[in-house]
Write a protein that binds this DNA or RNA. Structure first.
Length: 492
RNA sequence: GGUGCCGUGCCCAAGUGGCCUAAGGGGAUGGUCUGCAAAACCGUUAUUCGCCGGUUCGAAUCCGGCCGGCACCUCCA
């Protein structure tokens, strides 16, 4: 068990403070997952990777972690804002869209995108949460919670649904600054709904017997509000009070603000004392949005033949509480760094096999570097420094690549294993098939050309050798003469 | 109206008042290797941290003011 202190920026107190757990060395952690109405985009995963890194750091400290990350498959509305839970359900809208035509019903659509999400998750090498609950699996608890809120005087029924009374919860607005009064002053137009006692009140249950996903409740047919699902699932798996809660910055309001209000109104206890919100990702200096045409799903990037770990590294290259401007350069830099890590790993493997005699010349240096990397992670998930340490270690391994003793190689391997556990940037998990970029190369032709060139080189006909090399280059094939023979790869 | 973030070399980016004459990556540029390349590896690359004041023995780091950029409270993590 490490005696290091794990410090994390908390958006509730707006300070960096130690992450304390109720039960020593056991972190109870809830992070908001996606609404599965489409493929996850790279911004979604930046936020998930923050959670992943927190979990990895906690485990590296020897903590036990119970991580719950939900999947929202009902109730997340297109205009789930302060004025009212308005708009339509995202799942329903998705079914009506062009992509939605592939599905027989909204349930199939949800399952398809949930599966795609888990697949992206694995490729990006995120650790698996202990529990991945779905909102639709917990509707009964949501109904019970709704009832309980009414009984306790925190919610009331109207002809359109059940609403949470913001006035009944004085702490409302503590997280986001959007107190009831501030909301009233908001510049945004407020949609008036005469059914609500107060325009700041938000929906806990929506009455709707036309909805594609509906359940029977004491309030008739309908479906649960978006916020109540997380209140209920966090409580079901982690108890009344949890240690840490995370999500994207847009979750802060209204989602998390409402979640706190509901949970604390239900239990009378503090819901969560430590909140982490990952800031948005910009693409080309602008907010990523479908309308601007700079919107990328994780799959879009993979389909270009980009190494998934490179995307992972690119997404974790900047602190979570700072916007990340995602560019081609970010991705290219990350890809280069992943190569460095992999080269060091390959060098260590080779040296392990060669089993050369000699002292361990790396052990001490690498142990220090790992310790510094872990320190960096404990200092508010400082990925930049942790990565720098990882690369420094990789460098010192690669530097001696061909001379590493068995003892050094063993130390090198240990370091790379530790770094991989902490940052997940050395080896991907089980090879998830990745779509190959459309190189469509004629391998036989290339090999014969290479052979031809090798013969020319042997005959010292370098002009011809160079000619063949240029010919291949024009085809997009790059050659490298290495001690182990000629290597080739598609030029990126 | 509310809530936050950021301005550090050509680019990305760390920096927890003194070990900062400021990590790390990219690029550029020398070199080793190579028939030449490529790749790899080894060097070099900010007396300076948006601007102006202040606190301090000492500030990129704290305080105040100014200038500039951005985000959330719409779709969206």
């Amino acid at each position: 068990m490490s005696d290091k202190v794990f410090r994390l920026y908390d958006s509730l107190s707006r300070t960096v403070k130690p992450l304390v757990t109720q039960e020593p060395n056991h972190l109870r952690f809830y992070s908001c997952g996606p609404t599965v109405y489409s493929y996850a985009h790279i911004g979604n995963f930046r936020s998930f990777i923050t959670s992943d890194l927190i979990v990895r750091t906690a485990r590296a400290l020897g903590w036990k972690v119970t991580w719950v990350s939900n999947i929202t498959d009902v109730g997340h509305l297109t205009q789930d804002d302060v004025a009212d839970a308005g708009g339509e359900d995202k799942m329903e809208r998705a079914l009506r869209s062009k992509e939605g035509e592939h599905f027989n019903n909204v349930w199939e659509l949800a399952e398809y995108y949930a599966e795609a999400y888990r697949n992206d998750w694995a490729r990006l090498n995120l650790t698996e949460p202990e529990i991945r609950p779905k909102a639709t699996q917990h509707v009964r608890e949501q109904i019970l919670a709704t009832n309980e809120l009414i009984e306790k005087g925190h919610a009331y029924e109207t002809p359109t649904g059940v609403y949470f009374s913001v006035e009944s919860f004085p702490n409302y607005g503590r997280l986001s600054g959007n107190t009831r009064d501030n909301l009233m002053d908001a510049v945004r137009d407020v949609v008036l709904d005469d059914n609500k006692r107060d325009q700041a009140d938000f929906a806990v249950w929506k009455k709707d017997d036309k909805h594609l996903m509906q359940w029977y409740s004491p309030f008739g047919w309908g479906f649960p509000g978006w916020h109540i699902e997380c209140s209920v699932m966090a409580r079901a798996y982690l108890g009344d009070t949890i240690d840490l809660h995370s999500g994207g910055e847009d979750n802060k309001f209204p989602h998390h603000e409402c979640e706190i209000a509901q949970s604390e109104a239900l239990t009378g206890k503090q819901f969560c004392d430590h909140w982490v919100h990952t800031r948005f990702l910009l693409v080309g200096g602008e907010k990523m949005s479908k309308s601007k045409g700079n919107f990328y799903t994780v799959r879009d990037i993979f389909e270009r033949g980009i190494e998934p770990l490179a995307l992972r590294l690119a997404l974790m290259s900047t602190h979570f509480n700072k916007e990340l401007n995602f560019t081609e350069q970010t991705l290219a830099d990350a890809a280069g760094n992943i190569q460095r890590m992999k080269r060091a790993d390959a060098a260590a493997d080779a040296a392990l096999e060669a089993a050369r005699l000699g002292p361990d010349e790396l052990g001490e240096t690498l142990a220090t570097l790992y310790d510094e990397a872990l320190d960096a992670m404990c200092h508010d998930i400082n990925t930049s420094v942790a990565l720098a340490k990882a690369l420094e270690g990789a460098k010192s391994i690669s530097r001696e690549a061909d001379k590493l003793s068995l003892a050094s190689a063993t130390s090198a391997k240990k370091f790379l294993d530790q770094i991989n556990d902490l940052l997940g940037i050395v080896r991907g998990v089980a090879e998830v098939p990745v779509p190959v970029a459309e190189t469509k190369v004629d391998e036989a032709l290339i090999l014969s050309k290479i052979e031809e060139r090798t013969a020319a080189k042997k005959a010292k006909d370098f002009a011809k050798a160079d000619e063949i090399r240029n010919e291949l280059l024009a085809m997009g094939i790059e050659l490298r003469d290495t001690p182990n023979g000629v290597e080739w790869s598609a030029k990126s």
